[in-house]
């Protein structure tokens, strides 16, 4: 087996804050193969964005990163900043959630897309311009030549997100990290933007990490998925496995809380309580909210990740007792 495109092992991220250290990500291990779409699902604060920023080497200086992040076999944790800068935007690119704030308001969109090329390749302005128009066309922006001359505020939300994607794929990266790329968009535009990702993956062998809290998006585009809770991965597997045979009680709770078209008219299921904010409970972080938790065990002993099959893992002490899908 060849080395995976991205291999994250025992990643931990700790922030020094005024209120003491905060463990944003802990004991996180996952891998992404070339060309696949990897979904990361979780609530706000579950560490999905922080773990991706760690891959990009974009965490603020208050963060301490430990563990290992290997990209094409090369270690990124503790790597030379200039080395990381060369990877960013060229081999690993990122699409941000809110394209309005992630685009420079005083720079023409075409120039901005060209910037990422100029940051990595020594090309003439004319060549860049031509490439930019091509890229805008690829992501489905009509009239690319005219649009390239406009400013971000002249674009609608969906068009802006497309421009962001055009920027991210400009150097044909191996890995595209999309952080909630569709959250700020309405549903029809969301579908179009996801379509753009699919189209890009058909053209190139780009792997996509799709970070979202929207299970529907994951079900639609991802090959494999990782569910995160309180900075840890609680379950990993293929989309079918995780959606049809969830193992961890948290995943079950998430899936059960989705509205169903075929269900009765009853109230939606919900997971009681709130995710822990700063101070994690002892034992399993999910235990205070878990219907299967056993006092004296789940609230004492932190569960470890268990790989049940290649690419299929969970993190629950009672998973065998409670069986697969209920």
């Amino acid at each position: 087996m060849t080395a995976p495109l991205l291999e994250v092992r025992d990643l931990a991220v700790r922030f020094a804050t005024e209120h003491g250290p905060v463990q944003a990500v802990d004991d996180l291990t996952y891998r992404i193969e070339a060309g696949e779409t990897f979904g990361i699902v979780g609530e706000s604060g579950s560490g999905k964005t922080v773990s991706s920023l760690a891959v990009m080497g974009l965490l603020p200086s208050t963060a301490t990163v430990s563990g290992s992040i290997r990209f094409r076999g090369e270690e990124l944790v503790g790597a030379d900043p200039e080395e990381l800068r060369r990877l960013r935007g060229d081999r690993i690119a990122m699409v941000f959630q809110d394209a309005l704030t992630a685009l420079n308001p005083v720079m023409k969109v075409g120039l901005q897309v060209g910037e990422i090329i100029a940051a990595h390749h020594d090309t003439s302005a004319a060549d860049r311009r031509q490439r930019v128009v091509e890229l805008l066309d690829v992501v489905g922006i009509p009239n690319p030549e005219r649009r390239a001359e406009q400013y971000p505020h002249e674009f609608s939300g969906g068009m802006r997100q497309r421009a962001m994607i055009a920027m991210a794929i400009a150097n044909e990266p191996d890995l595209l990290i999309a952080d909630e790329p569709t959250t700020a968009l309405d549903v029809t535009v969301q579908a179009q933007v996801l379509e753009v990702f699919a189209r890009i993956q058909e053209r190139t062998d780009t792997a996509v990490t799709m970070i979202t809290h929207d299970l529907g998006v994951i079900a639609g585009v991802a090959d494999r998925v990782m569910v995160m809770y309180a900075g840890r991965d609680v379950e990993q597997g293929s989309v079918d496995e995780v959606f049809y045979a969830p193992r961890h009680p948290y995943t079950r709770g998430l899936l059960a809380s989705l509205p169903r078209l075929d269900g009765g008219g009853g109230r939606l299921e919900r997971i009681p309580g709130n995710p822990p904010s700063v101070v994690l409970p002892p034992g399993c972080a999910f235990s205070p909210r878990c219907g299967f938790a056993v006092a004296g065990r789940c609230d004492q002993e932190p569960p470890a990740r268990r790989e049940v099959a290649p690419g299929r893992s969970d993190r629950c002490l009672r998973v065998d007792e409670i069986g697969s899908v209920a």
Partner: peptide
């Protein structure tokens, strides 16, 4: 941040 993510110096 986006510019930094794009690898701008």
């Amino acid at each position: 941040e986006a510019a930094r993510a794009a690898g701008a110096s």
